[in-house]
Each structure stands twice: as structure tokens, then as C-alpha cells.
Design a protein around this nucleic acid. Structure first.
Lengths: 230, 230
DNA sequence: CGATCACTTGATAATCCTCAATCCTTGTGG
DNA sequence: CCACAAGGATTGAGGATTATCAAGTGATCG
């Protein structure tokens, strides 16, 4: 275990694209004082489907997949969280166990804000409360879109769409560094099928492959494929 | 058009299983004064995907499907709302257009509470605000479950699961009166496939069919089939 | 430099969709 | 009250899509 000084929200590199930007200086200080931060290595589990939430996680640096186990042990990735995003709020607010697991896609820094502190903040800060509500609405929207896509859009269209989404999500890296298996889990198919489609896209010059990472070079083309089935 | 006296929340048959049960007498009166109610006949559209929300709908009597259009015009049913349920809150709170349509499954009575009134209520009544938040969390949970099921659980398992869910949703009727096409839309398949599976379940004595409606007679058996693929 | 993990490819098979034809139920107008 | 129209339910055949299984190859890392 690396020695590591607990970072404070005030200095956090993600403080601007985080809902905590609705907080006052005092509130931020209180959060900083009460939270506890951790380094999670690639592949490490942040929280596990079925366990009880003790607070909410705030992703300071890195990327995390939020996934559920589906039939025959296949993993459905619900969303990919980036720095500044919260994790585990649904279970905390909904007062239930985690319905999905969170797993680091790379080495990350994640802080845990205790439940009491988070609820207190929601009570006190209306902007924060409203912001959380908007976040919940966005999550609903994207889940329902994904649901509809998986139901009726063929894999080819879903992967085209996913690559466009991921291209935006990974914008600071210029490349999508997801495993083929994770990409498959993201669109609800299996590794082999994902590989075949990705390989098609490469031949069609819609993407380029550098080692394992994918670089989108023709987003319009992907968009067209995605919308072919609308 | 039938003449029809505007019902008031205080007398609404669904007032107990409605979030408005967190409201004070005064608040309820204010809502009643500001809302406008309507009869929607079976098949009638309550609101349309893509249009702008003017308020939230409260379902006083009847059942409504909330559905999105998927690829090649297929309809994905996101959820089925019952009396006491709200409709259209996601778009209102998320400040977006409707991402799905709501269509009456039978003759219904639905009230429209103006946006301003609803937002005012959220501001004033913390219990109501909290209740809405819980509702949003529940919607996320069920959307994500459905998403995962559609991704990896075969149709047979999905229909078994849906019949159990619908059996509860339709509890006051003892029968599930969905069209086969709606059932198909609910689980993300096509009419013919749904028909075949339903017919299998009938032969396996898990359900009975009376005219068009489905009656679950062996929920455990359906549950077993649903979980076969977990 | 072996070993592990990710990626790739091909053959095969299961699942599910599409299309087309037909039947049954329900409601409606004469 | 009956005939007919319309919509829903059903069935079968055929085919497309996607999953599964097996057998590799290439990359990465201690």
C-alpha cells in the first residue's frame, strides 16, 4: 500500500465538474473533513452488488464501470463514471442495497463521504439537492434509452452508438481503452461478437486500432450506422 | 364527449396510494383547484414522445403504458402506470422533452397538475420532495433490472418474469389484460414470439387463458423459469 | 522468457425475427 | 338479430442474427 495524503475537495482536480461545486466554502470544508479517500487499483471493486451503502463515493481521478451481473454470469455495464462523478447515490437515497457493482477500469482515487454527511448536505443545500435530482433524471433517461436500444437495435448499431458515446466520455484521452469484453458488456453482447463488429468498423475505416485502444476517426459514419435502425 | 365533473383530490379513489398523501389539507386543496382532469379512452395518447411537458399527470383511475419507439417502429414499454401513479415527472424535473409516450390501456381518468404548482409543492413540502426522489430511484432500479434482463435473459425467462410482475400490477383484476403485442413490447420481443411463449406456458399449466386475458396459476413455476437464466 | 491476459477467427448451433396465411372475437350498422 | 368488418391471436416455414465452443495468435509483465 502506497502512503498517500488524503486530498481535500478544495484542491481536487475534479472540483469544477462535480456537484460539490454547488457547495459553499464551509460546506466543502466539512465534506473534506468527514470523507475518507482511497486508491483503487485497476480491476479493484469499489462496492459490490448486494452490500449495504455506507455513504456515497466521489470519483476524484480515473474511470469506473458500474455493472450488474446478468444471466449466466454475464456482466452488463450500466454506465461508466468519470472523475467528478458520484457513485452509489441510488442505493443511498433509495435506501436499498447496491444493485450493481463498481469496478475500477484503471488506477483511481475515490473518496467516500459518509451517509450522514451526504444527507445533511441534501437537507441544507437546495442547489445540491436539485442537482442530485437532475442527476437521477439523467440516469433514468440514459437507462431507458439503452433499454430500448438493446431490445430492438442490432449489435452493429449498438456498438456504433456506444463508440460515439465512449468517444465523448474518454475525450481527455483521445482513445477508448476499454477491453473488448467490457465493450461487449456495455452494449449487451458477448466478447466475440463485439470483436467482430469492431473489426468490421476498422475495415470500413470508421475507427483505427492502436494496440488495443480504439480511436474514432469517422463519427458521422458511426452515427449513420447507429441510426440506420431507428 | 361525455360531460364530466372535475373530481377533487380529496375525494379521489387513489388518494391513499398517491404521493399526494404527503400533502396537508391546504396543499391538497390548492392542487385540486389548479389541476384539470380528463377522460382518456382506451388507446388515446396522454402525451407524446418529443413534446414539451406542461405539468405532471396524476393517474386517478385506469392503466397507462409508458413506451418509447425503438428500431423499425417497435414499441418498448418502459413501465405500466396504475391509479395513484404520476406520469411525466422525469421530463418535468429533468427539464427536457418527453422521451416516451403515454397511452391509455383502458378508459382512464387523468389529472394534469401545472408545472408551477408541482414545483411549488416540491419547494414547500420536504416529504413530497423526498418521496419524488424515492420514486426516481425506484424507476432507475427497475429500468436497470430490465436492461440487464433484456441484454442476457432469453425471451422465455423475460416473459415468465413479466407475467409475475404484471400479475402484481394487475392485482385488483385477477387477470392480465394486456394485448399480446403489448406484452411483447413490455419484454422487448415481437408479438409472434410472445404468443408462442405464452402458449407454451399454458400447456405447461403455469397460466390459464380466458379469452385474451392471462391468469397466473403457478407463480412459483414462472419464477423458476425466470431464474433459470440467472 | 514463460505465463497470463487479451484478442482473433472459424465452425456450428440456438434463438428469435419476418412474412404470410388463417382463425377467432368483438363490436357495429343495417 | 344477424352479417360483416376490424383487430387481435395463432401457426408454420424460412432465414437472419447472435451466441457458443474451440483453437489458436499476439501482447504484456513480473
Amino acid at each position: 500500500m502506497v502512503k498517500f495524503t488524503q486530498p481535500r475537495c478544495e484542491q481536487c482536480g475534479s472540483k469544477d465538474n462535480c456537484l460539490f461545486n454547488t457547495c459553499t466554502k464551509d460546506e466543502l470544508q466539512e465534506i473534506s473533513d468527514s470523507k475518507s479517500c482511497n486508491i483503487y487499483k485497476k480491476g479493484q471493486v469499489v462496492f459490490q452488488e448486494g452490500s449495504l451503502p455506507l455513504g456515497i463515493f466521489c470519483l476524484s481521478k480515473g474511470m469506473v464501470k458500474v455493472a450488474k451481473l446478468g444471466s449466466s454470469g454475464k456482466e452488463q455495464i450500466l454506465r461508466i463514471a468519470k472523475s467528478g462523478d458520484f457513485l452509489g447515490y441510488r442505493s443511498l437515497i433509495g435506501e436499498s442495497r447496491y444493485r450493481a457493482s463498481a469496478i475500477a477500469l484503471e488506477d483511481t482515487i475515490i473518496c467516500l463521504i459518509p451517509k450522514a454527511e451526504f444527507l445533511e448536505l441534501m437537507r441544507k443545500n437546495a442547489m445540491f439537492y436539485n442537482g442530485m435530482m437532475k442527476v437521477l433524471c439523467d440516469v433514468i433517461e440514459s437507462a431507458e434509452n439503452k433499454l430500448t436500444d438493446i431490445a430492438y437495435k442490432p449489435v452493429r448499431g449498438r456498438i456504433a452508438e456506444a463508440l460515439i458515446l465512449l468517444d465523448k466520455a474518454f475525450d481527455d484521452r483521445e482513445q477508448i481503452t476499454l477491453t473488448r469484453e467490457d465493450l461487449a458488456g456495455f452494449v449487451g453482447t458477448v466478447k466475440e461478437t463485439a470483436i467482430r463488429v469492431v473489426s468490421e468498423f476498422k475495415h470500413e475505416k470508421l475507427i483505427e486500432i492502436d494496440k488495443r485502444s480504439i480511436k474514432v476517426i469517422n463519427p458521422e459514419g458511426l452515427m449513420r450506422i447507429s441510426n440506420l435502425y431507428d
